[in-house]
Simulated assay, not measured.
Amino acid sequence: MPPTVLVTGANGFLGRHIVAELLGRNYGVRALVRPQNHAAGSALPPLQHLPIECHEGDLSQPATLAGAAAGCTAIIHAAAMAQVNPARNPAVWAANDTGTQAVLDLARQARIERFVYVGTANVFGFGTQAQPGNETRPFAGARYGLDYMDSKHAATQRVQRAVAEWQLPAVLVHPTFMLGPGDAKPTSNALLLELYRGRLLGYPAGGKNYVHVRDVAVATVNALNLGRVGESYILGNQNMSYQAAFSLMAHIMGVPVPRWPIPAAVAQAYGAACDLKFRLSGRPAQLNSAMVAVANDGHYFSAQKAIAELSMPQTPLEQAIREAFDWFKNNRYV
Rank of each mutant, 00 (worst) to 15 (best):
A20E: 06
F126H: 15
M312T: 01
A217M: 03
H17K: 06
Q36P: 01
F13M: 09
A155M: 12
P2H: 06
A43Q: 09
R228Q: 12
P90S: 06
F124K: 01
D147Q: 04
V255S: 06
V211L: 12
V159M: 12
I307L: 09
G206M: 00
N331K: 10
N122T: 11
E318P: 01
L224K: 02
Q314G: 03
V292A: 08
R30E: 11
T8M: 02
R214C: 06
I262P: 00
C72R: 04
M240T: 00
V334Q: 08
P258E: 05
T315D: 09
G198Y: 09
L44N: 09
A20N: 10
V29L: 13
M178S: 03
N134Y: 01
A39L: 13
W260T: 12
N89G: 02
V159P: 12
V163W: 05
A79S: 07
A69S: 04
G227A: 07
L22V: 12
H299W: 15
V294S: 02
A10K: 04
L14D: 05
V84T: 14
R34D: 06
L14G: 02
N96L: 09
E194I: 02
R283E: 13
I75K: 00
L44C: 09
G227N: 06
T128G: 04
A66E: 13
F126L: 01
L226Y: 07
N296L: 07
A154M: 11
E113N: 10
V292Q: 03
Y196F: 11
S60C: 15
V7R: 05
W327F: 14
H174Y: 12
A264H: 01
V5I: 15
Y333G: 09
